[in-house]
């Protein structure tokens, strides 16, 4: 079996920052595994600017931000990069199995950093009753369809959730010529940055309903309408307030969940409610020499913080490797 000092799973900003830092700390035998055809992770589909204000002292778009790390990592031959490589199995003694076109590979790592990012919460997780027609998207999927594929998912849109992702997508749809019928938020006020609240919805007069939730999705083939209701202080629906909004699209921006199924498989303890690793110190798991960083560790607001904390993971792994030599 092939052996590596350090294997990093996930080639988003977290994985790249950790790899570069580990190298700078003296680790010279590194494998970075990424499922996609390119590095950069979720940044590739975030074409809006505002990334890097802290880290690079500059406002960059997502792809520009990723490119800075990609350019750097490519100058370091000791970091081997394996793209289109999907890790399917992980054991407690840090053996990984990954598939790529043409081969199934098994590898033994001495230290391991998981930087697998997160997935979006689905309609099912927040339990919106109703039918299951076409036209229900997670914000990230809609973002990918618009920004990367040049496809417009819908023309009459309801956005559920007012975090930054929801707000940015509301604006994106508006600018693409779609009618954004409402942003619906169950909390009493907007969840995103004030800046985004102003620049993404108020400037475009997009109706904003806080203390409201969607109680039903209707439509057989494509979404036709949703029922919306006001909620009280305990998030209980106030029945009389219910009204319908016609739409062809429901966009869900209701939160992210760290992707930790692999470390769970390896036996690391997971917090059931957040899906983050049980951890007594930044990036640590209950298995020694197995670190988790970036959005897989916890859901971060800013990619700059992701990179700084992930650099720490690189240092921690280097430290751990020195210790076992």
């Amino acid at each position: 079996m092939i052996k590596k000092d350090l294997v990093i799973v996930g080639g988003g900003p977290a994985g790249m920052a950790a790899a570069i830092c580990a190298y700078e700390q003296g680790v010279k035998d590194i494998l970075l595994i990424e499922r996609d055809q390119y590095l950069g992770g979720i940044l590739n589909q975030c074409v809006h600017t505002g990334f890097g204000l802290d880290y690079f002292k500059q406002s960059l778009s997502g792809p520009e931000y990723a490119e800075r790390f990609i350019a750097k990592i490519k100058t370091i031959p000791q970091i081997e990069i394996s793209l289109q490589s999907f890790v399917v199995n992980l054991s407690s003694d840090k053996q990984l199995t990954y598939l790529k076109p043409g081969s199934l590979n098994q590898i033994q790592a001495k230290a391991l950093i998981m930087a697998t990012g997160c997935r979006e919460k689905t309609r099912e997780m927040i339990n919106i009753p109703g039918t299951r027609p076409a036209g229900i998207f997670s914000a990230g999927l809609a973002q990918k369809l618009i920004n990367i594929e040049g496809l417009l998912p819908g023309k009459k849109v309801i956005v559920v959730g007012s975090g930054d992702i929801g707000l940015i997508m509301a604006r994106r749809f508006f600018l693409e010529g779609a009618e954004v019928k409402a942003v619906v938020e169950i909390q009493t006020k907007c969840q995103g940055l004030i800046r985004n609240q102003v620049q993404c919805i108020e400037d475009f007069n997009i109706p904003f309903f806080c203390s409201h939730k969607i109680t039903k999705i209707n439509g057989n083939k494509r979404v036709e309408k949703v029922s919306v209701v006001k909620v009280d202080g305990d998030f209980k629906p106030i029945k009389e307030s219910q009204f319908d909004l016609e739409c062809d699209t429901v966009l869900l921006a209701v939160g992210l969940i760290p992707e930790n199924e692999l470390i769970e498989m390896a036996g690391a303890k997971i917090n059931k409610s957040t899906n983050a690793p049980v951890s007594e110190k930044l990036n640590k798991t209950t298995i020694s020499g197995l670190f988790v960083c970036g959005n897989a560790y916890k859901v971060y607001d800013l990619v700059d913080t992701v990179c700084r904390d992930s650099e720490t993971a690189g240092e921690q792994a280097a430290e751990y490797l020195k210790g076992i030599k």
């Binding site: 076409a134 369809l145 594929e149 040049g150 496809l151 417009l152 819908g154 023309k155 083939k221 494509r222």
Partner: peptide, 19 residues
């Protein structure tokens, strides 16, 4: 791509191909 459906005609996944 604009004619790919979830479960048959009418259940189109996207509404328009900008490209």
């Amino acid at each position: 791509l604009s004619e790919i459906s979830k479960k048959g005609p009418g259940s189109w996944v996207v509404m328009e191909d900008r490209a």
